[in-house]
């Protein structure tokens, strides 16, 4: 519970602070605009209320002056867009970290689980095919592909080392899900038929939660997963301990089965 507060959750990824900066700037501006505006509104209501001896005036305020708030709003919005939004968006969504320097995983959503496909010690993913999917092989990893021999899959339990970018290829087996880790400020829809790349860099050790942000069926509310951000050594130990998927079932499966 320590990770969550009355306002935003703890900042546990490298760009959480940048997103929060935007949230605070915009909310501060919103509140400022709203307060100033409400004061003016309240003044008008009091000053021009109907009363004895007061008559409405047919004043014609200079119409162009009324465009000043519009211009101010547009100026504010476009400055935020140019100085903050587009640069940040580009670095978050339009460029990806180098695969060599990252933890690369496939995240495959299904009703109502998050499967994480780790490449195993060889760093290579085995081929996957929808035709091979069955109860013991939820991602349909090809058993004849040597690259897949040491792959392992966790369900609703993902581990990442602190301070190293994670490059996740997000997809879905059935319907649209949305991968959301509030503490990382990261969210991306997992769309069947598409593989969407996604990256984040955990910066704070601890236990966090993945939630599904897109209605995906009856179990939408219970579609969650644990994210454990560990120190480098703890992560390596965990990684080594994971048995590769051979013919046996996926290890690390914790619940929902």
């Amino acid at each position: 519970m320590g990770n969550y507060s009355w306002l935003l959750p703890v900042q546990a990824s490298s760009f959480a602070a940048r997103i929060d900066l935007g949230l605070w700037i915009i909310h501060a501006a919103m509140i400022l605009i709203f307060v100033l505006w409400t004061i003016f509104f309240a003044y008008l209501l009091v000053a021009y209320r109907q009363r004895d001896g007061h008559k409405a005036e047919r004043i014609h305020i200079d119409h162009w002056k009324s465009l000043a708030p519009d211009a101010a709003v547009l100026f504010f919005e476009l400055s935020v867009v140019a100085l903050y939004v587009i640069p940040t968006w580009s670095s978050l969504k339009m460029s990806l970290p180098d695969e060599k320097d990252s933890i690369v995983v496939n995240i495959v959503a299904e009703q109502f689980n998050w499967n994480v496909h780790y490449p195993g010690p060889d760093g290579k993913f085995g081929k996957r095919s929808a035709a091979l999917i069955d109860f013991s092989n939820p991602l349909g990893i090809d058993p004849t592909d040597p690259a897949g021999a040491d792959d392992f899959v966790t369900v609703n339990d993902m581990h990442f080392p602190v301070g190293k970018p994670v490059l996740a290829r997000l997809s879905s087996k059935d319907v649209i899900h949305s991968f959301f880790i509030p503490a990382f400020r990261i969210k991306q829809d997992a769309v069947p038929g598409m593989v969407v790349p996604l990256w984040f860099e955990p910066t704070l050790e601890g236990d966090y939660e993945v939630t599904c942000a897109q209605l995906c069926g009856v179990g939408h509310a219970i579609m969650r997963a644990d994210v454990k951000v560990q120190s480098r050594t703890d992560y390596d130990r965990w990684f080594a301990s994971m048995a590769p998927v051979k013919k046996a079932g996926p290890s690390g499966a914790t619940e929902e089965w």
Partner: peptide, 25 residues
């Protein structure tokens, strides 16, 4: 961002309409 401008304009016009009025509540 651009579509927010006419919405602001509508709101501004209605607020400024109160100026100089004799408001019946």
């Amino acid at each position: 961002m651009i579509i927010s401008v006419p919405s602001v304009a509508l709101l501004t016009c209605l607020i400024l309409s109160l100026k100089g009025a004799s408001i019946r509540f």
